[in-house]
Design a protein around this nucleic acid. Structure first.
Lengths: 145, 145
DNA sequence: GTAATACCTAAACTTGACTTTAGGTCAAGC
DNA sequence: GCTTGACCTAAAGTCAAGTTTAGGTATTAC
């Protein structure tokens, strides 16, 4: 069992955020002793799930729905499975998108490196849009598709 | 040259968002004809950069700084290069983190699939934390590290 | 016993990124 | 000539996700 301060350190989250999550109903099973929150394995795993659902773009109020299902036993397995399957698609799409953004950023790194070497952007711009060095062309094409 | 409505369709962004970006100084070079915005190649590329800097977590006011540097010519090449190098690190870290979140989600998909088959979670919980099937164990370990 | 810590609440405040509203211009089609 | 559609502005409103404030309790350290 952990106090809110210990959990705050473990997850590197402000205490105020943990209290806010609790107020929003994200720890429906949490116990208290004389008013003080006691975080158990349940709540630690809940926090891992919260971080993961948040990373997938889910809002707090929808995370609460999931946490409520988890208190309702076997009859909500199907719903919970479907939620994670949907989040999986969202995260996979987000990774694909970030890869594209990363290619743009890599292209821009090369662009400014080269501009610094040349003292201007003219040589680069003359290579656009399809006469870039092969590796760079790949980045450029992916970023501009 | 495009109108705001055409750009809105091209980038699938509300017109109000484009006007907001303009008001925040994200298109410092934009021309107008009798009050009406004219988006050129400059602004189209700016929007691609905006999406990419936003995806990397940069705030609008910091994106404006970059757009201002871009109007200042060769003397800001170094700063611009450093900005993209920093964004590169942020995006790479974010992809790594999303991979971890994705492994958690995949684990949970398997978890609920199996719970549905079994009718309960007992069999699964007996395998925690290190007696899971090999492929699933990998997901679990990465998600809980 | 008193001071420092770590916990607690309710409610107000903050921030960033838009979005909406209310009112207006301007060119094209009928 | 007048309606329709696409554009414009300034200012107010919204929303999610916290954070801060003000005031209080409870256990430990000296």
């Amino acid at each position: 069992m952990y106090t809110i301060g210990q959990i705050s350190e473990m997850f590197n989250l402000p205490i105020s955020t943990l209290r806010y999550y609790d107020k929003e109903g994200l720890f429906p099973q949490m116990q208290r002793r004389s008013g003080i929150r006691r975080f158990g394995e349940n709540e630690v795993e809940a926090l891992r799930v919260i971080e993961c659902l948040k990373a997938s773009g889910l809002e707090i109020k929808d995370i609460r729905l999931f946490m409520d299902w988890a208190t309702q036993g076997a009859e909500t397995y199907e719903k919970r499975k479907e939620l994670f399957e949907a989040r999986r698609e969202v995260i996979e799409a987000e990774i694909t998108n970030l890869q594209k953004m990363l290619d743009m950023v890599k292209f821009k790194c090369w662009y400014y490196e080269t501009a610094i070497k040349n003292g201007n952007e003219d040589g680069i711009n003359a290579m656009l849009p399809d006469k870039l060095p092969p590796e760079i062309q790949k980045l450029y094409d992916n970023a501009h598709s």
